[in-house]
Design a protein around this nucleic acid. Structure first.
Lengths: 155, 155
DNA sequence: ATCTAACAATTAGATATCTATTAATTGATC
DNA sequence: GATCAATTAATAGATATCTAATTGTTAGAT
């Protein structure tokens, strides 16, 4: 209609991701957490003694966003932060027993959600989708570089 | 490791969507708009004389979020809102010449972005990915219904 | 030893989104 | 015709995210 493909793949991707993310968030809330809380919990568990910089990357948010969630989770008694004695710029993040318990509960929810999510989709199809995802990310990485050059050119 | 598949498809979906969305937003900003602005512009153009309720659905946000963007875009002189004489509860949203001009500019950006995004991906692969997206949405729709029942059961 | 650059986390301020509530209008029923 | 329910948009208040600036700490250079 506007010379755009009937439905740009980026639009389909965004809408699907929004629906799925929302559903997972709902499920996590019903289990006493939230999607960001689950992301932080699994990242902390996956790399014991991780510092916040690594942690933020693992969660997939900026450092400031992580600080925000850690504040809330520390206030809720899910984790503790203390200075790394070896390098006092760094904070060591560790789960409390309460945090461990919530991790276990949310893990069940995540497993059930993932099972439901991939129902009726073959392993080969999933592999192909993952490959396309990889290509999509690579394609916009190039796009980004161009946009950055454009922006710099205007300075 | 935690009995979750190496990388849940939902996680891959979310991360890819975030990267692509961000890249498109950057491109739109470089062209003098933003992703939400582009979404509103194309939705308004697609359904001339649309009311806000339909418009919000088309954009994929809640009514309150649309109001927020319309306020900003009206302040920027991109569109006008006026009462529908036939039903004064409804507002008619229309683009100004400035809004039309921005639409044309951002359309170029969107077309270029979509071309870049799907580079090196075959039509058959895209079809399969779309089919998987449809299945993912259907799968979480069921999940949602269950969560809702759970929530109600607890009241 | 001091000074400067780099690094880690936090804070401040902005945007985008949501749900719940309110205000205005319409239509239907008594 | 008055009242009550439904509809539409706006507002209020919350959460999640970002970038930019700030604070404290470390390491390297002179």
């Amino acid at each position: 209609m506007f010379e755009l493909s009937a439905k740009p793949i980026g639009l389909d991707l965004a809408q699907t991701a929004k629906i799925v993310r929302r559903a997972l968030d709902d499920a996590m809330i019903a289990s006493g957490g939230s999607l960001p809380v689950w992301s932080v919990l699994i990242s902390v568990k996956s790399r014991q003694f991780g510092h916040q910089r690594q942690l933020a990357e693992s969660v997939g948010v900026q450092g400031a966003t992580l600080t925000h969630h850690l504040n809330a989770m520390e206030a809720d008694g899910l984790l503790t932060r203390r200075r790394d004695p070896a390098n006092r710029r760094k904070h060591l993040v560790e789960l409390t027993p309460s945090g461990e318990a919530l991790f276990l509960r949310l893990r069940e929810t995540a497993i059930a959600f993932d099972r439901q999510l991939r129902a009726g989709i073959g392993q080969d199809e999933l592999e192909l989708v993952r490959a396309v995802f990889t290509r999509l990310r690579a394609n916009v990485a190039g796009e980004n570089a161009e946009a950055r050059e454009d922006a710099e050119a205007r300075l």
